[in-house]
Amino acid sequence: MPLTAAVLGAGYFASFHHEAWDRLEGVTLSAVANRTLSRAQATGFPAFGSLSALFDGAGVPDILDIATAPETHVNAVREAIAAGCRVIICQKPFCNNLEEARALTELAEAAGSTLVVHENFRWQPWYRAMKAAMEQGEIGDVLQGSFRMRPGDGQGPQAYLDRQPYFQQMPRFLVHETAVHWVDTFRFLFGPVKSVYADLRRMNPAIAGEDAGFILFDHGGGVRSIFDGNRLLDHRAEHHRLTMGEGLIEGTAGVLRLAGDGSVHLRRFKSQQERVLMPPYDGGRFGGDCVFRLCEHVARYLRGEGALENRARDYLKVLEMENAIYKSSETGCRQELKT
């Protein structure tokens, strides 16, 4: 079944969306809209200066993909719902707060629109490989996981200005913009979260929000995970933003290790040897081509091929966890969550 997709946004990250939809078999990228029309025109696709102009000029697509700055998301989703879009994908951060996200989710459901959050890290191939190994019992009973985020891009007064300058002005940064990727990914890997404890801090005075911190997740059943994030530090990798760090998943029979080159390694308990489960990623695309993988997943869903991940309703759990993380850091107390 041929499908049409349109993208709202023509900035740095939106380019990954354009490329993904254009490469996806059976989908036509019918239009790109951006408030600076010249940037939309530079993509080479039919260009419009606003979402309403896109709907009027190119028609309502099967899939509208919103890839703009966070403060624009609510109005863009509302406009897409009113226009009758079948499927709306919205980049994270999803809305400015949990209350907005709940209201927008209810509005989409009432209108019959399928609203999906573009949370792409769970689609990175190394996490899919680790999840498959866990399900196959390669490391026995899972006990804990950890990730050390070290992109090395947050030092000095020029931090982020060359790529996403609005990062400097976000009052909530490390968790709201970045660590939320692992909040969702840890849910994917280890299941629902019962409680969180967080210690966040601001290290670079050039930015408004926090840029380092520790977050401990209790998944129940004796399983814990920890996120250790620091945007000022780097890790052993040629491309620091490929995996953005290094990770471990440990069980009663072995350990899975994620390296900075995207490779996944298995070491059996009490062994000195590692087996490569996934070789280094050499595809050259952002995050193991996770944007394409998410777009492909949504297109497959529209063709009746499988269930849909990261519906807005389910993603509200991620935002509830985000709120709890900030409250924990502010109060110094563990925060319980409804699973």
Rank of each mutant, 00 (worst) to 15 (best):
A133F: 01
S113C: 13
E135K: 08
A132T: 12
N120E: 14
E135M: 08
A132I: 02
M134I: 03
V116H: 09
T105D: 10
Y127P: 00
M130Y: 05
L107A: 15
T114C: 09
E119C: 15
V117C: 10
S113E: 04
G137F: 11
A129G: 00
L104P: 00
A133N: 03
G112K: 12
E106I: 07
S113P: 06
S113V: 10
A108K: 06
S113G: 08
Y127L: 06
E109H: 03
T105H: 00
T114A: 08
E119I: 14
A108S: 10
Y127A: 01
V116W: 05
R128K: 09
R128A: 12
H118Q: 15
E135F: 02
G137W: 07
L107Q: 14
P125W: 05
E138M: 13
M130G: 01
F121L: 15
T114L: 10
A132M: 05
W126M: 05
S113F: 05
T114R: 12
E138S: 10
S113T: 15
R122V: 14
F121G: 02
V116I: 13
N120P: 03
P125Y: 03
T105G: 04
E119Y: 10
E135R: 00
A132R: 15
L104G: 07
Q124F: 09
H118K: 14
P125C: 04
A110G: 02
V117F: 08
M130T: 00
L104R: 02
A110T: 07
T114W: 04
A108M: 08
F121A: 14
A108C: 03
G112N: 13
E119Q: 15
N120L: 14
G112E: 10
R122C: 06
A111N: 08
A133V: 02
W126V: 01
R128P: 05
A108Q: 12
A133H: 00
W126Y: 13
Y127D: 03
G137Y: 09
K131Y: 04
Y127F: 09
A108I: 09
W126I: 01
E119R: 15
F121W: 15
M134C: 12
T105N: 04
A110Q: 11
Q136P: 00
M134V: 06
W126K: 06
G137Q: 06
A111V: 09
F121C: 09
A129C: 07
K131C: 02
I139D: 03
A108D: 13
H118F: 13
L104K: 06
E135H: 03
A111F: 01
I139W: 02
K131W: 05
L107V: 04
P125E: 04
A108E: 09
Q124K: 11
V116Q: 11
S113H: 04
Y127I: 00
T114P: 02
H118D: 15
A132D: 11
N120I: 14
